[in-house]
Design a protein around this nucleic acid. Structure first.
Lengths: 349, 349
DNA sequence: GAAATCACCTAAAAGGTTTTCGTAACGTAG
DNA sequence: CTACGTTACGAAAACCTTTTAGGTGATTTC
């Protein structure tokens, strides 16, 4: 809580030059003698001068600020994306204005207006599921990039996790470790994430000439459903030797129930989860092999493409971002087929 | 991606008045005829005019923007605080610039400079633990409010959860439900949160004339430690009828291990957790009675006090924010002493 | 009929920075 | 000594909005 902040006028006065010269000296432009430049720099340091970004932006029309519009920060998936994006912004000299519309379209409109009146250079919209969401690109005079939830307009720039590819990774890993009787438990079919992953399972098994054990079991994304599905599955199809679960919570529930039914994981049944939600995947017993959608990278990439779009180099289309297989103990420890781990999850502090 | 944005000059021209009149008309000031005002408003709507906040800020010296400096967004506690703060900002016409210093002091300094050059009206600093952190208030010409982690300067404005009070709530609840042989398992003593809660336990038991069973067991904040501690406790002090755990993960581990050892929860042993981390507290079997530190409210309150401070009405000191007891099934279902639940946690979507 | 009042509107300045253009000083070539 | 190029600096415009002070015309008052 000190006094008024120094302006470039103050700096110029202290250095005994005009504001124009001071500006040029501070911005490293030519046409200013080295000694004069140093004089100005010293003066600026002495006053701890910092250029007023508002004035700069007013003039240049660029604010070096982007808006980050999230539809529901409470959820688990928005945060890592946001984090990755913020990360990319911080690297440059960009700043990010955060708005959480909390799934409310009215609120979203309000925030869009607010962000525009603040003259953001671009917008990144992060959704809470992989289902397409309404495009806002046409209502907005700046570039927009969609992360996690793609825009429903394929001409927009969207980044989504490759759920189908993730499922492939999981199933291939199970097959590689010698499993052949593989089941799939997942979340509500109303989620594109669930159907995409199921499709990945189907295709990969077909390619390997294997048949999926039972139908894909769809329920909630919860541990409870994982336990329930495990009971059903172990009753109806006791011969299974592996199960790929649509998320880590289902997997955790499955492992718990399977153990109570006397099935050993991974010896009798291998289990793969999805999301690599470490509070769960590292706390199950055994720890959980899972697919990491690498959301932080997704957010980072989305942000970088927003920069590109701001520079006029947009990359339209829906881009699928690769996922990673994180091998832990719930699948075949020490099986010779997979001598090298693709990736091993670190431990939390 | 349209053309140049309209300025108030365009609006004035279209309405056939001067910019001054246009400004007054749009800002609801006097000295403008109703018909003229409507003319201007229509023109503004037609051009979808939005005042340039940069120009407004340049003039008024206020940006209606605050910086939100978080030390580690990856952690669990920063997010709800952030959410509550964002919530409070959105209600007014404030916007929030998000910066994640990721626990790095250098980075933090950098962000502070960035935020200041953007002329934020205030700063809210959210930490990742309840341990005091270095004050930055003196380096900064705008009001600062600390949330979750207090400033080490007691003259600053800080908001922290009342961990001691939370522990009191937990222990009183256990006593009220008829438990008398109560143990406490918690996290590392290097955390103020752990020692504060332990102190709350000690005092409350003393007030009730009860003796704590065994020493407070300090370990990691993990489910693993909860299981381990359960084994130790059940071996050394088999007579316990309740345990208060320093967080929900420890509690989840405890419940798991206790069940494996044949102890029924809550019939034989009641368990209370801390944090109300719903992915855990609602998925344990039985569901977990726990203390909700109400972090979202903490963030909200901090933001509101930042507004007050910006208006010159600062409220110095470290403010303890009350916690809530969330009763679920791990403590005495249907015990007559507590006919009304203080609060019941909702379920996740 | 002149003066005072009123309602409505405009011109201009202010806010901080960057950039363009102008200009002064100086050196060099003719 | 003139003409011109170079170097270093300064004046002023531009960005967009709000506010203050002032101005115009119409109406009222004595």
């Amino acid at each position: 809580m000190t006094t008024r902040r120094a302006t470039i006028t103050d700096v110029a006065a202290l250095a005994g030059v005009s504001v124009a010269t001071a500006s040029k000296a501070l911005n490293g432009r030519d046409d200013v003698r080295a000694t004069t430049r140093q004089l100005v720099i010293d003066a600026a340091a002495q006053l701890s001068f910092q250029p007023n970004v508002l004035a700069q932006g007013l003039l240049s029309g660029q604010t070096r600020t982007v808006g980050l519009l999230t539809s529901d920060m409470v959820g688990r998936f928005g945060i890592p994306v946001l984090l990755g994006a913020e990360n990319a912004f911080g690297a440059g000299e960009m700043a990010v204005l955060l708005c959480d519309a909390r799934g409310d379209a009215i609120r979203e409109q309000h925030y869009i207006r607010t962000l525009l009146s603040r003259r953001v250079d671009g917008l990144i919209v992060v959704g809470e599921s992989t289902d397409p969401r309404p495009s806002i690109t046409k209502d907005v005079p700046v570039p927009v990039v969609y992360a996690y939830a793609p825009s429903d307009d394929p001409a927009d720039v969207s980044f989504v996790p490759d759920d189908e590819g993730g499922a492939r990774l999981a199933v291939r890993h199970l097959i590689a470790t010698g499993r052949t009787r593989i089941a799939h438990i997942t979340g509500p079919t109303t989620y594109k994430a669930a159907t995409d992953r199921a499709e990945g399972v189907r295709e990969t098994l077909a390619e390997a000439g294997l048949e999926q054990v039972g139908e894909t079991l769809s329920g909630a994304w919860s541990q409870r459903w994982g336990r329930l599905a495990a009971d059903m599955l172990l009753l109806n199809d006791p011969q299974i030797d592996a199960v790929f679960c649509g998320n880590d919570q289902i997997a955790a529930g499955f492992i718990e129930a399977a153990r109570e039914r006397g099935r050993r994981v991974p010896d009798d049944i291998a289990v793969v989860g999805y999301d690599n939600w470490e509070v769960l995947s590292e706390e199950t017993r055994p720890t959980l092999t899972t697919i990491d959608p690498d959301l932080e990278r997704l957010g980072h990439t989305a942000a970088q493409h927003l920069f590109a779009a701001i520079d006029g180099k947009a990359t339209p289309g829906v881009h699928s971002m690769p996922t990673r297989l994180v091998i832990r103990d719930s699948t075949a420890p020490g099986i010779p087929d997979t001598p090298w781990q693709v990736s091993r999850g670190g431990s939390e502090a």
